[in-house]
Write a protein that binds this DNA or RNA. Structure first.
Lengths: 155, 155
DNA sequence: GCGATTTGGTTGCATTAGAGACTAGTTATG
DNA sequence: CATAACTAGTCTCTAATGCAACCAAATCGC
């Protein structure tokens, strides 16, 4: 008995939240099962693989994650020898973080899986719809940022 | 220095997650500031206001939240005398939950604010785009559910 | 109707995320 | 250069989320 769903189901922020959680949960399970990575760690790997050596500060900017989240993810990855720190000659407070050989090897497995997952999940949308969806998300995000005050782009 | 954003930014699940968090965070702040409500509590209020008396089990179905989240939200709302329990004659394990007078009064303030917030946030999208966005989210969610196994629709 | 199974609700526990304080190193100012 | 103001990173504490075990009431099978 599907108990008449309330108007909540028409509320866009709700729909957005539920959908996002479903997608994230699915992906998190997959990465955890295959690589023992959690999402913050995966994001750091993805960015480092793409951009090369970065500081934590730069990772915060690139992933939009909290600096604590970045720090924890890096610590875990370093313990697993997937990334390595090298001193930053131009600023002694930070280090350059870079994928190790093992890290690069994992990255090479991770990215195809990411695209595969994306394709699988977004199967329900054709090319054009995916592009539209992406564009709308982008505009929405910018709008929220704009509303959420005049701060740079922390958080 | 906007450090070349990596390919992560093109990854749909990432974009979805970041956007959803931004939207939810903004709304959570607003409801917390104005009514001292958190999102799970707000959702329960919204559904009860719309559907009348329901059991916790029915609320789980209507909000897609975890039963623990529903239980906790109800407990808080009951303590604040925004909702009241009455015995369920047809099943002694559960109760009917319903908005009190105060609850209804708050609901009458809450819903317009919800629509206002929705309008404000989704300002960046015109009518048609909003409809498209909603439809795409719906299809995406159904797709994930479908992939996530044959379970009813718990979680 | 009586034991076995199921289900609504509750509690406790483990995991996660975020805010704030703190440390070490850097830049700006006199 | 010495002090003040700032910044990258780390640590700690608290709040939020979800799972699993649990209790009590209901249903099923005989």
């Amino acid at each position: 008995m599907p108990a008449r769903i309330s108007r909540l189901a028409d509320f866009l922020p709700y729909l957005l939240s539920v959908t996002s959680n479903a997608v994230s949960g699915r992906i998190a399970d997959e990465y955890n099962a295959r690589f023992g990575l959690r999402i913050p760690e995966w994001r750091v790997m993805a960015v480092l693989g793409d951009a090369g050596a970065l500081t934590q500060r730069e990772l915060v900017g690139a992933t939009l994650m909290d600096k604590v989240a970045v720090n924890r993810a890096c610590k875990v990855l370093e313990e697993r020898s997937l990334i390595a720190r090298s001193p930053n000659t131009s600023d002694g407070r930070s280090h350059h973080l870079e994928l190790t050989g093992a890290g690069k090897a994992m990255h090479a497995q991770i990215m195809p899986l990411a695209l595969e997952m994306e394709a699988l999940l977004f199967d329900a949308l054709n090319e054009e719809e995916q592009a539209t969806f992406k564009a709308l998300l982008g505009r929405l995000r910018r709008r929220v940022q704009e509303l959420s005050g005049e701060q740079e782009f922390s958080r």
